[in-house]
Every structure is written in structure tokens, then in C-alpha cells.
Design a protein around this nucleic acid. Structure first.
Lengths: 197, 197
DNA sequence: GTTTTTATACTGACCGGTCAGTTTAGAAGT
DNA sequence: ACTTCTAAACTGACCGGTCAGTATAAAAAC
């Protein structure tokens, strides 16, 4: 498992993920060629197909990997916290994640609301898993009276998820000079006000 | 200029716009073929090239047309209103626009934050024009004391623009059964709270 | 501990299909 | 008459995917 071979392979896969994520974030899935990905990762084209069944499967595994990390961060963030604090922790976790994996966040924002693509089903499912963590928090907050009773859990959860994405990526793309703390503070302020009972 | 011939031509261009917008919203620019667009518009492929210089130019003109309409709606919405009311009117106008041109909104959301594409410059410019209308409102609101003094005009304006997009499109894609009035009300509630001095 | 074998990881030229864009001769609309 | 559109064939670049062959590290055989 940790012998030289599988470590080498895992390393190659990781490099391919990184290359693919950057290129797809910039250009989109269709505009990114397998040759591009291979070149940026510093491997031959055949290596891509040795490690992944197809371009689509590479992308799907990439999505699974990336959103899996986000979901894990979400779970860790809310662990044991009361609803109001958990909500703030979620916002912080999301922005922290976006800061660390900016290209992946950009990619998500661009591909999240597409329809009629092969990998759409996969993405929809993964999105659901991440949002479910938010929804659990909102639900328990509404139940305990910590959050407004008239809050629609589903809408609020997906709105929270999407708003964090769009505000953060907009900041990354259009005003990267601004410190992220400002964005985080602004977003927290918004969420705090909206969460007022 | 308004003779039968140019009207006919304008009609064809319109049909091509509609076809292109729907397909690109679903699949993205690169995954959409010119043959697809021609077929959906019910014209011959040659007609596409009779009316537009290239696929890219078609898309750029599409962006100009679509965002031009949005900017005009924005201007009409804020006309003569005091800042706070103008802000609410902007939200209403944006959602109204998205409801009418849902495919274009979806397309915008997917292509807005891309980098390294030929038409990126065009889109950036057009985005700026639309957001400038919002910014003017926010700026005068801050100046007159109707809006919080610590509000960063640039961030607030682009956030407002992006949030409307993402919340509305998310609703369109993931919970289309929900009436838009709910979404509008929720968004207005958020903006109202955030705009509180 | 040196040689031989095997499994795994990678290479890059190549193939078949796809797609943007062109061309052409003519039909239809105004 | 003039503009707009059609239909269909064609070109050439590009791209996803394949495959015969190479490299390398670990294991087996000696």
C-alpha cells in the first residue's frame, strides 16, 4: 500500500487532479483537452488513460474528491456547536475551503448549475451531500427556536451554500487585492442579520 | 431600416440567439456546436455564417444583447427612486429579468467567472456596465446616509448582483416548483436587513 | 549479491471521428 | 433587382481514445 509503486501512482493522479482542476476552472470542461491536462501535469497523454477510464471519469472523480473534502470540513466545523454558532462556523469553513482550493471553487461555480451534461447527476448528488450538512444545522436551529421559524430549510441551505461560493469567487476573480477577511466579515454580517429571530 | 427585408433578417438573428442561448446554457459554449444551433433555430448552417462572422462573435453579440437588456431594465427600475427603494427595485428587476430570460441567466452564471476565454474581456466589460447602475445607487445611498457608511460600494454592488443570480438560478434548476415570489421575498428580506443603517 | 523474471507505471505516435468554417449553385422572399 | 436563406458537399485542424512498446522497481531464482 505504501510501497514505491503505489505512492508514485498516487502522486501522478494527484498531479493530474491539480492540472485538470486549474485548466477546467479557467476554460471549462469541454474546452480543456486531455493533451493540455497531460502537458500541465508533466506526463504523457497515455498516462491519463492509464490512471483514469476517460476524461469524464477523471472529472467525476475530481468532483468526488473535491466536494468530499468540503463536506468533511463542514462536518468538522459544526461538530458539537449550537445552531447559531454552527452557522457562522459553516460560513468560515466554506470561505477557508475556497481560499485553499480556489481553482476548484471557481470550477464548481461554473459547472454547478449546468444541465444536460454526463456528469450532472454525480455533481447533483455531491452537492446534496454538502448541503445536507448545512440543512441539518438550519433544521435543528429552527426546531430549537434559535433561528426564525419561517425559514425554509431547503432554500436557506442552498442559498447559503451558493452565496458563499459566488461572493468568494467574485472576490477572487474581480478584486483579488482585497483581503479575504473583509469578505468573510461581510458575509458573516449578512448571515448574522438574516439569522436574527 | 424597418423594411421587410431587415425585419426578416432581424427575426432570423433573434431565432439564432434564442437557440444559442438555450443550448449554451445547458451545455456550455464549447460543447455547443454550430450545427446544433442552426438545427434548433430551424435554419441552414450557412445562415448562421451569413448573419454572424463566427461562433465566437455570435456569442459575444448575444452577451451584448442580453446584458444590454438587463442594464436597461436596471436603469428603468431605479429611475427617480430614493436609494433604499431603488435597491429593492433593483432586486425586483433582476429577478424579473431572470424569470423572463432564464436560459440567459443560467448561461451568465456559468460563464461569468471564467478566465482565459476569448470573450472574457467582452463579458467583463458588460458586467461592469450592469453593476455600475447598482453601484451608482449604493454610492448615492451611502452619501445621503440612507445606507450604512461602512458599506464598501464595489463589493456590495457585485455581491448584490451575484447573489441575485445564484439564488434565482439555483431555484430555477433545483426547485423549479417553488413560486418565484418566495425567492423574491426572501431576497428582498435579506437586502433590507443588510441595508439597515 | 548478482541475474532473471514479473508487475506496474508510463510513453508517444497514431487512428477515427467531430466540428468550425467555406463554397457553390440555386430557391424564396420582399 | 436585390437580399436573404437553403442544401449539401467539402476542408483541415483538432481531439478523445488506443496500443505496441519502454522503463523501473521489486521479487524470485540462482
Amino acid at each position: 500500500m505504501t510501497d514505491g509503486r503505489s505512492r508514485r501512482r498516487e502522486d501522478t493522479r494527484q498531479r493530474l487532479f491539480v492540472a485538470a482542476v486549474e485548466l477546467i476552472a479557467e476554460q471549462g470542461f469541454s474546452a480543456t483537452t486531455v493533451d493540455d491536462i497531460a502537458a500541465r501535469a508533466g506526463v504523457a497523454k497515455g498516462t491519463v488513460y492509464y490512471n483514469f477510464e476517460s476524461k469524464t471519469v477523471l472529472f467525476e472523480e475530481l468532483l468526488r474528491h473535491g466536494i468530499g473534502l468540503l463536506t468533511a470540513d463542514f462536518r468538522a466545523a459544526v461538530d458539537g456547536l449550537p445552531p447559531r454558532e454552527a452557522l457562522a462556523a459553516l460560513v468560515r469553513a466554506e470561505l477557508e475551503y475556497i481560499r485553499r482550493y480556489r481553482a476548484f471553487a471557481q470550477l464548481l461555480l461554473s459547472e454547478m448549475w449546468r444541465t444536460n451534461r454526463e456528469w450532472q447527476q454525480t455533481l447533483r448528488l455531491l452537492r446534496g451531500e454538502a448541503i445536507e450538512v448545512i440543512a441539518e444545522t438550519v433544521r435543528s436551529g429552527v426546531a430549537s427556536g434559535d433561528l426564525p421559524a419561517d425559514l425554509d430549510v431547503r432554500t436557506a441551505s442552498s442559498a447559503l451554500f451558493g452565496v458563499g461560493l459566488v461572493v468568494a469567487v467574485d472576490w477572487l476573480v474581480f478584486q483579488p487585492d482585497r483581503p479575504i477577511e473583509d469578505v468573510q466579515e461581510a458575509l458573516l454580517g449578512i448571515v448574522r442579520r438574516v439569522a436574527q429571530t
